[in-house]
Design a protein around this nucleic acid. Structure first.
Lengths: 339, 339
DNA sequence: CTGTTAGCGCATTCAA
DNA sequence: TTGAATGCGCTAACAG
């Protein structure tokens, strides 16, 4: 099945007995066309099954009508929801989105940005976490609007939309403190992550320090983002003679790993151990006990990021980064400590 | 930030003091270029930060070097894993993939296929489930290879790669039967789904009928694919005086909903109720009890679908649909029935 | 209202 | 080894 050229606008024009310009007018509505002619052209288009060649069109316009969305991991429900929010809004606005999956690889990130540039996508929404210098460079070379979704630029060069993780982390810590917990462990992503993990560590520590119960270093574990990482860390944490009564986690996935570990060790949640997640993913609400967590309005972030992009494409003034407030969602995985 | 035109090949040629043809030769290697000239050109490219305009290039070639992947729901971990398998393989092969998310909407499916056609993508991998006539039409008009991943074409017009769901369903049923279950309920997707739900219903029924314990109609519930649907169905099923001792589910997500429902009703799994899922998603292994399920090699399906597409693009003979055998993964959610 | 024509940026002849 | 010219499919002046 070798690529078959397919009909061109000229074929349509010939079949309809008009010039290519007239065909162009019919499809773009850029100038009046007599109803009779229009009908002949439309018939010819239908008969030939012709569709415009976007490469040719974008060569003329310098635009494609396409927005690129760069995502590190579509298999992660968080990014899946984010992308869903964007595509729903895009469908509503008649915008086309192409998703570029980069598998958490900087190399693929940059390749994706190159692709956006080479194909002259109208805008790029970037969701892949902390920005490196290579990213900044690539953004600049893009020559197109860039919007950050669920991440941000400390220098403020590119606008973004995301929740304030530090506030969210404080909410989680305060919730545990108000329940009476004093022995609280922390399970978080890399502190070098300035977008998600870093601020969460900061928020937790600030809140716990103010309450005078900053946990010892052994109870502050840096882990990666998935369930298995939370599981392993929790196993080692909970096996120690002196165990925490509560654990704050950087993501729902980590927290679900902790719940599994507790179940395996015969530790009852929430009676013997309270667990708090972060993100508010739907699946965590179906766990038993359902996970108490800090909810992010993920769909909203996606929608708003797309809006931001459309405004920038329309040439409006670049807005600044917008911070949303997360929400404490109290479910069944937290309670007053037994002792 | 209005789109800035950016440098063209002509700018590079001028700066290097050569013709555009020479620049073209340097980047394509289509003809020999003297080392000195090459160096001057490369310098000019670097200095200008020039990147080829793919719209122009694809106008000439009729190819883009891009494969389109059409996915109904990236927030669903199944499709996320499938997409990950493809993008990993694509990265390895140096192929670029653009993902089109269609939100389970036929309209968006067709829009995505239009986009693939208008942008002359080199191939399309379609993953969105049962094919309608509109899809077939759109595939034909594409004029490009189409590969089906985790779905198939009953007419065999387009090759695909997927597991044999009927065999998988039989495996699940046989597992329960061999444990001694006779009162088995079925929770599946729409029977009209010829790809996933339909064959699973068929497999279950055939296996159970052969064992002489086909469940009554009230125990055969058609539900949608997510946890909440499984949850609700299980609640109504398990509240009845005469309840099944086991439930076969069409997906892991449905099964996780069932596990939550059982927990809420105080029904102990697997002692009072056995549950079997379908798909083998990683997250279901972290449930407690971990879910017994029928595993699909999702990543492999993605990889192979991409391979198939590359072979078709290379002009090799169209292979036929390839069926993979699923695998019974026995974990903690199934056991011998108590009574 | 409609046709003719000149590019958009690049690859590819054909000459030199 | 290099340059000039042509055309890919389409839009946007400019004429008529």
């Amino acid at each position: 099945m070798v690529p078959v050229p397919g009909p061109t606008i000229r074929d349509v024009a010939n079949l309809a007995g008009v010039s290519v310009a007239t065909v162009s007018r019919v499809i773009s509505g850029s100038a009046p066309v007599s109803p009779a002619t229009r009908e002949r052209v439309e018939e010819a288009m239908a008969q030939l099954g012709w569709r415009p060649n976007m490469a040719a069109r974008s060569l003329v316009h310098g635009r494609t009508g396409l927005y690129g969305v760069i995502v590190p991991d579509v298999a992660n429900p968080f990014f899946g929801e984010l992308a869903t929010g964007m595509t729903r809004e895009a469908a509503r606005l008649g915008i086309q989105i192409v998703m570029l999956h980069t598998d958490f690889s900087e190399e693929q990130d940059l390749a994706a940005l190159d692709l956006c540039r080479e194909h002259r996508l109208d805008a790029v929404i970037y969701t892949s976490g902390t920005l490196g210098d290579a990213h900044r460079d690539a953004f600049r070379k893009l020559g197109r609007p860039v919007v950050l979704a669920a991440t941000f630029d400390p220098d403020g060069e590119w606008p973004g939309i995301l929740v304030d993780s530090e506030i969210g982390a404080r909410m989680g810590a305060r919730h545990l403190l108000s329940l009476g917990h004093r022995k609280i462990a922390l399970l978080g992503g890399p502190e070098t992550d300035q977008v998600a993990a870093g601020p969460r560590w900061r928020g937790w520590r600030a809140e716990l320090a103010e309450a005078g119960c900053l946990p010892p270093a052994e109870w502050q574990l840096e882990v990666r983002w998935k369930q298995q990482h939370g599981y392993q860390a929790a196993i080692s944490l909970l096996r120690q003679p002196e165990a925490p009564t509560a654990i704050l986690c950087c993501s729902d996935m980590i927290a679900l790993g902790v719940l599994a570990a507790a179940a395996d060790l015969g530790i009852s949640v929430p009676h013997e151990l309270s667990v708090v997640g972060f993100d508010g993913q739907a699946i965590a609400g179906f766990w038993r006990p359902p996970l108490t967590t800090i909810g992010q309005p993920i769909g909203l972030i996606g929608r708003e990021a797309l809006h931001l992009a459309t405004r920038l494409v329309a040439g409006e003034e670049p807005p600044t980064t917008r911070w949303l407030t997360p929400e404490l969602i109290v479910r069944g995985s937290t309670a007053t400590p037994r002792r």
